[in-house]
């Protein structure tokens, strides 16, 4: 089980974002109000239904995924890098915490932030469009997996970043393209077959498709396969996280 030390680090990480809602929860809420206002009210009526769903309803799962994974990634990357930058990451590093506990605390807290942001976006979306949950278990499991996956990736980003610009670059040049080509705003069925195949290399596609299945009951891919792919990727990333922390990459000289 998780030791007192591991729980203490997890708690500190959670407090770090819970105590600053203006920096952590307000921005995604406001951004998504704007998304829903534009795509639901201003443009929504002029865009055809996709797979039988109004456009705003179709993109809602993607926006939830976008917000959740962005926040999970950003939280882990920022927290690790800021700790390195100001060297206070030495506090847990010089403590009797196992490397697995350190990873679990940072990734767990960041994933929790992603999940909370996902719930906030879902609640905001509910104001603009009637949405239910078709497959609650699939939705819950997938949300947890994708938030852990991107928190784990964020930890790697935080370890390798050399300055704050690197964090921005990761978000702008890696995360955002994955999201925009991840079938958030369109169905895979509208793509030519070659691009559809290429899209399957993008983990975001599986995430959005499975969350869409959980919420709307519609998917382009087989949900169990998607969950399997995401779970495999998550386990691999967590193993890499633990290995990097144990090696002291970005943490020790």
């Amino acid at each position: 089980m998780w030791s007192i030390g591991g729980r203490a680090l997890f708690k500190r990480e959670v407090q770090r974002f819970v105590r600053r809602p203006k920096n952590t929860f307000m921005p995604p809420a406001i951004t998504n109000v704007l998304y829903f206002a534009v795509f639901g009210i201003v443009l929504g009526g002029r865009i055809d239904e996709i797979a039988g769903f109004p456009y705003v309803l179709f993109i809602l799962p993607g926006l939830i995924v976008l917000g959740a994974v962005s926040n999970a990634f950003e939280n882990a990357a920022f927290s690790i890098f800021h700790g390195r930058w100001n060297e206070y990451i030495d506090e847990p590093l010089t403590s009797p915490l196992s490397y697995t506990e350190i990873v679990a605390a940072y990734v767990g807290a960041s994933a929790l932030r992603g999940l909370l942001v996902g719930v906030i976006i879902g609640a905001v979306g509910r104001i603009f469009t009637p949405i239910g949950i078709k497959h609650a278990a699939v939705l819950a499991v997938t949300m947890v997996i994708v938030c852990v996956l991107f928190a784990g990736l964020g930890l790697i980003g935080g370890l390798y970043a050399r300055d704050f610009d690197d964090l921005t670059v990761m978000n702008q040049f890696i995360l955002r393209p994955l999201v925009f080509f991840g079938a958030v705003f369109y169905s895979l069925d509208v793509l030519p077959s070659t691009w559809r195949t290429v899209s399957l290399l993008n983990p975001m596609v599986y995430m959005v498709d499975t969350i869409r299945y959980g919420l709307l009951g519609y998917s382009d891919l087989t949900p169990t396969v998607s969950v399997g792919v995401l779970l495999g990727a998550t386990v691999a990333v967590l193993a890499l996280d633990i290995w990097l922390v144990k090696r002291g990459v970005g943490l020790t000289d």
Binding site: G5, A8, K11, N86, E87, S95, L97
Partner: peptide
Amino acid sequence: IGIAPQEFNVDRFFPIEEVLMHKAGYHGI
């Protein structure tokens, strides 16, 4: 080991009382 380093490497987010409590927590207290 308890170490007081030469450089200031303290968590700036929290009041110092909590900084100390966190450190104690990492040691299983």
